[in-house]
Amino acid sequence: NKFNKELQWATWEILNLPNLNEEQVKAFIDSLRDDPSQSANLLAEAKKLNDAQA
């Protein structure tokens, strides 16, 4: 389904953001699992944090 694909994509993207530490990655992945419908928003937040920590 749509959420499953978005969840998989967001998870992959977050795992590959180079500037997030392990705790941050875990927190984003946990949030994705808690509410897959928020995957686009969570991915945007993760990318923003990744850029800020570059």
Rank of each mutant, 00 (worst) to 15 (best):
L20P: 00
A54Y: 09
Q38D: 13
Q53G: 08
F3W: 08
I29E: 02
L43R: 06
N1K: 01
A44G: 06
Q24H: 03
S31D: 10
K5Q: 15
A10Q: 02
S31Q: 13
V25E: 02
E45I: 12
A40P: 07
Q8W: 08
L32N: 00
E45Q: 12
P36D: 03
N19D: 04
A52K: 15
K2Q: 15
D35W: 05
L32A: 06
A52Q: 11
E22W: 15
A46M: 01
L20D: 00
L20F: 01
D35K: 09
A54H: 07
K26F: 10
E13I: 07
N21E: 06
K5N: 15
A52I: 13
L32V: 05
A27E: 12
D34N: 14
N1A: 01
K48G: 07
L20W: 00
A44N: 12
I14M: 05
D35H: 07
A54S: 13
N19I: 02
A10Y: 10
K48I: 13
A52F: 09
S31R: 13
L42T: 10
L7K: 03
N21A: 13
S31H: 07
A46Q: 00
D51R: 08
Q8N: 03
E13R: 01
R33W: 13
N41Y: 14
N16M: 10
K47R: 11
E6Y: 05
V25G: 04
N16E: 06
T11Q: 02
E45N: 08
Q8A: 09
I29W: 03
N21I: 11
A40G: 07
W12E: 15
N21Q: 07
K5D: 15
N1E: 08
Q53D: 03
L49P: 00
L32P: 00
N21W: 08
Q53M: 13
Q8R: 07
I14Q: 01
E22R: 12
L43F: 06
L20M: 02
A46R: 00
K48T: 03
W12M: 15
Q24V: 03
S39N: 06
F3K: 02
A40I: 10
K47Q: 04
D34Y: 14
I14R: 00
A40T: 08
K2G: 15
A44K: 11
E45S: 07
I29V: 06
W9H: 14
N1I: 06
P36A: 05
L32T: 01
Q8T: 05
L32H: 01
W9L: 11
K2M: 10
A40F: 07
I29N: 02
N1V: 02
P36N: 03
Q38R: 12
A54E: 12
A10H: 06
Q53H: 06
F3H: 09
N19R: 03
K26M: 09
N1F: 01
L15G: 10
W12V: 09
E45V: 11
E6W: 12
Q38G: 08
F28D: 00
R33D: 05
R33L: 14
W12D: 15
F3I: 10
K47T: 11
E45M: 09
A52S: 10
L17N: 01
N4E: 15
N41F: 14
N19Y: 14
E13K: 05
E23S: 13
P18T: 08
P36G: 04
I14T: 01
L17V: 00
L7V: 12
L7A: 11
D35A: 10
A40Q: 13
S31G: 04
W12Y: 11
S39F: 15
V25F: 03
F28K: 01
W12H: 15
V25P: 00
V25Q: 12
S37H: 07
E23V: 11
E22I: 06
L15T: 11
K47I: 13
K47N: 10
E6A: 03
K5E: 15
E22F: 05
Q53Y: 09
L49V: 11
L43M: 04
L7S: 05
A54W: 10
L42P: 00
A46P: 00
D30N: 15
D30W: 07
L32I: 09
A40V: 09
A46V: 02
N16Y: 05
R33G: 08
Q38T: 09
E22L: 10
L7D: 10
F28L: 06
Q8P: 02
Q24S: 03
A52H: 10
I14K: 01
A46I: 02
L17T: 01
N1H: 04
K5S: 13
W9R: 12
E6P: 05
T11M: 13
E13V: 11
E6G: 02
D51H: 10
E13Y: 12
A40N: 09
L7F: 10
E13N: 06
W9K: 14
A46K: 00
L20G: 00
T11H: 04
N19H: 03
D51L: 09
E45P: 00
L32Q: 01
A10T: 07
K47S: 07
N19P: 00
F3M: 02
K5W: 14
I14V: 08
A10P: 02
I14Y: 02
K47V: 13
K26V: 09
N50M: 01
F28E: 00
N50I: 01
K48F: 14
N16W: 03
I29M: 06
L32Y: 02
N21D: 10
A46S: 02
P18L: 07
A46L: 02
L49S: 03
P18I: 10
F28H: 01
E23K: 12
N41L: 08
A54L: 11
S31I: 08
L20E: 00
K48Q: 12
Q24N: 03
A44R: 08
